[in-house]
Amino acid sequence: MKATQIIPVLRIFDYQKTIEFYVDWLGFEVVWEHYFEKNTPVYMEVKKENMVFHLSEHHGDGTPGTRVMVFGEGIPAYHKELIDKKYKYNRPGLEKTFYGTVSFTVNDPFGNTITFNEEFDEEKHKDLEFSSIH
């Protein structure tokens, strides 16, 4: 078996806070939204480049407190982009992890966490300043 895509489903509880966090701060775009009828919970897909998340207000779709690990490139630049936005509720530190990555973690308004990782490279990352908080 070869997976072609894995899409985590994260539980959300408030549409406006979802847009503020995922779209306005993290820079995702809403690809689509689905409602079974008027005044029912939303199920949506958000995307940033090749990262895709499904976000659901439906009871039973995902559990609050889910952790997602994202591995990629450009993590320090993305971290700086987010810090420069001065988002009121998240100011994550950049860390060098015990598992050999440059990393930062964000916490969404619903208790979910997303950790962004890039493989640590001594030369490439030599000038980065890391947070001492663990």
Rank of each mutant, 00 (worst) to 15 (best):
G62E: 02
M69R: 06
G111R: 06
T105D: 07
I6C: 04
Q5L: 15
F21D: 10
R67W: 15
E33N: 06
G65A: 03
H134M: 05
M1Q: 12
N90A: 11
R11T: 06
F120W: 13
E29R: 14
M51T: 15
G27S: 06
N50G: 01
H134F: 01
F116L: 07
A77D: 04
H58R: 13
D14S: 01
D127I: 04
Y89K: 11
K2Y: 09
M44N: 05
L94G: 03
T63L: 06
I133S: 12
T63S: 04
R91T: 14
T4N: 13
L10M: 14
K96V: 00
T115P: 05
Q5R: 14
D108K: 14
W25Y: 15
F21C: 10
N117Y: 10
D14Y: 06
D84K: 08
P76A: 01
T105C: 13
I133D: 12
T40S: 12
T97E: 05
P76N: 01
V9N: 13
M1G: 15
E81I: 09
A3N: 09
K38W: 07
E123A: 02
G74S: 08
D84C: 02
K2D: 08
T105K: 15
H34T: 03
T63G: 00
E123M: 01
W32R: 11
E37G: 03
F21P: 14
S103Q: 11
